[in-house]
Design a protein around this nucleic acid. Structure first.
Lengths: 221, 221
DNA sequence: AGCTACTTGCACACCAGTGTGCAAGTACGA
DNA sequence: TCGTACTTGCACACTGGTGTGCAAGTAGCT
């Protein structure tokens, strides 16, 4: 606010803050536009951002770069949201519920990542990054089924894939108002697929909420 | 085979059988192409059918018409697969399992319909047709939750939406070899989301298989 | 005021995909 | 063998989206 560029050699940051904000707006608008229509044009994005197409190109040299920009932002958010793997509940069911509750708030960006991973195959990086998250998910599920808490009528990886699909669907439903909670029902559904009856799942989710309150992550700004 | 056109006034059908077969091949190829890439070009479709683009246009005047052609075929298959609503098991859990097992074999086309319903919004008809199927699904789920067999942590319509999403995911997994069965695990997963533990779900699915054997639909050609 | 960084509004070239026209080719049935 | 129905292989016009160039405009910093 009152700290303009002091050092002459330093590439001005104050001046650029304006542009930065604009970049952020474009990114946000792009997320919204791509959710509405997975292959929205650059013009659609620009208009959604209240900006001219040419300006979008000023920030992102190509469509691909824009997609990558979104993906980067989204993946950063996802990693932050997931928290430290070392600091998660021992119990697999609790761990699953905690992960579900944590990812839900960044649903839009998570959804974005998933859809990119499916469509723009070129983005190997996205796929890889999601792989990291998936692997972590799979590990927990695997642990849970080994300790007999989770069912094993399907391979762990498939169960995780189901969870991803359910996330997207429930986020859609939340968008259209059919679901109101903050991820609780998603967590219950996930646990149900893993073999816990909903009543039990709901109890676990309650516990997870408590656990989250008692174990605030550094990331929970 | 040996019944060529006899009546002169009658527009020849034997000659056209060749073209008919070609049309069918194009349709099949289009399904495959669109599964691989939801916005494959007409040229992609043509090549997948082993035909030149121009020929595709000979059968379908426009891309839209082609999509509609696929949708029509798929929806017809779906209606047939679902069978007569009046002749389905009383018990909701059994009914769900039966529906799941019945729709699984036509997975590709079902998937096609779902993806069309999501993308080409212009196809109101598709949406409507799926609506019919959805409604039937919802009715059964509703009945089940009223009789206390199914859980109600989410609205019935949302649960059905989850089932649709799971279908697509599991079909994908089946395509890539991660799932091998003939819809059994899908049925179990569906029932799990509805509140039945997998062990119980598996029992119900077994029962459903038996029921299907004992109640062959006229449609089960 | 003057500099600088950013935005705007055109202009353009370039593609990829769609849909059409037409002349030549092929294959099947009478 | 001829005719008819269908396919092929080009040519073309048209559209919508992408990416670039450039000159003019605007707003903050010094």
């Amino acid at each position: 606010m009152s700290v303009p560029t002091k050092s002459p050699g330093d590439p001005g940051k104050t001046r650029r803050s304006h542009a930065r904000a604009n970049r952020a707006r474009i990114l946000d608008a792009a997320v919204a536009a791509f959710i509405a229509d997975p292959d929205a044009s650059m013009d659609d994005v620009a208009r959604a951002a209240g900006v001219v197409r040419r300006t979008v190109y000023a920030h992102f040299p190509s469509r691909e770069a824009l997609v990558e920009g979104i993906a980067d932002e989204a993946s950063a958010a996802l990693v932050v949201a997931m928290g430290d793997e070392a600091r998660q509940p021992e119990r697999p069911d609790l761990a699953v519920a905690v992960m579900a509750l944590r990812t839900w708030p960044i649903g839009d960006r998570f959804r974005m990542l998933l859809s990119f991973a499916r469509r723009e195959l070129g983005e190997q990086r996205i796929h890889d990054l999601l792989g990291v998250v998936r692997d972590r998910d799979v590990r927990v599920v695997e642990r849970g089924r080994q300790s007999g808490v989770f069912a094993s009528y399907l391979p762990s990886t498939v169960l995780v894939a189901l969870a991803e699909a359910m996330t997207i669907t429930l986020l859609d439903q939340a968008n259209s108002g059919a679901v109101q909670d903050s991820g609780e029902s998603f967590a219950v559904a996930y646990l149900a697929v893993l073999g816990l009856i909903p009543a039990e799942g709901a109890r676990v989710v309650d516990e997870a909420r408590r656990w989250l309150r008692e174990n605030p992550d550094v990331a929970d700004r």
